[in-house]
């Protein structure tokens, strides 16, 4: 068992972080019209033959969106589960464009911060890959 798996998830801390960004989160969850314009502007989505796992909106709705809906009530497994989506599937290049004005990379960056606050991040020294 690695160090990262040993620490219990501090749900109150996650929930405090989520509360601070509630307006931005509501915007993405309520106003994303699934137009898929962001998808076409993401080079990772395009270079993975349109694999939905790389679609900017998908990445956010299935990571931060779920975290928000669960009000931070998640376990370590959940955070480990979204880790790939917010690290491997996005390079934070800020190239995606959302006509509604949702700042997707900012939200992915924020999701990483939540993971980091619980000591969940890529274990590069254990050979875990970044991309």
């Amino acid at each position: 068992m690695s160090d990262q798996e040993k620490k219990a998830v501090d749900r109150a801390e996650i929930s405090k972080m989520l509360d601070k960004k509630a307006p931005e989160m509501k915007r993405i969850l309520n106003y994303c019209v699934h137009c898929s314009i962001c998808a076409e502007s993401c080079f990772l989505y395009m270079s993975h033959d349109g694999d939905p796992q790389y679609m900017p909106s998908y990445k956010i709705i299935n990571s931060l969106g779920k975290l928000y809906k669960k009000k931070g009530n998640v376990d370590h497994e959940f955070l480990e589960g979204i880790k790939g989506m917010v690290w491997n599937n996005c390079v934070l290049c800020h190239r995606c464009y959302c006509p509604i004005g949702i700042d997707i990379p900012r939200m992915i960056d924020f999701t990483r911060s939540i993971c980091r606050s619980q000591d969940v991040f890529p274990k590069l020294d254990e050979g875990e890959s970044w991309l």
Binding site: R116, F121, L124, D125
Partner: peptide, 14 residues
């Protein structure tokens, strides 16, 4: 830094 210095194992979270 979550960029290069994380990857080169010099300045990431660990």
């Amino acid at each position: 830094c979550g960029g290069c210095t994380s990857i080169c194992l010099a300045g990431g979270q660990k």
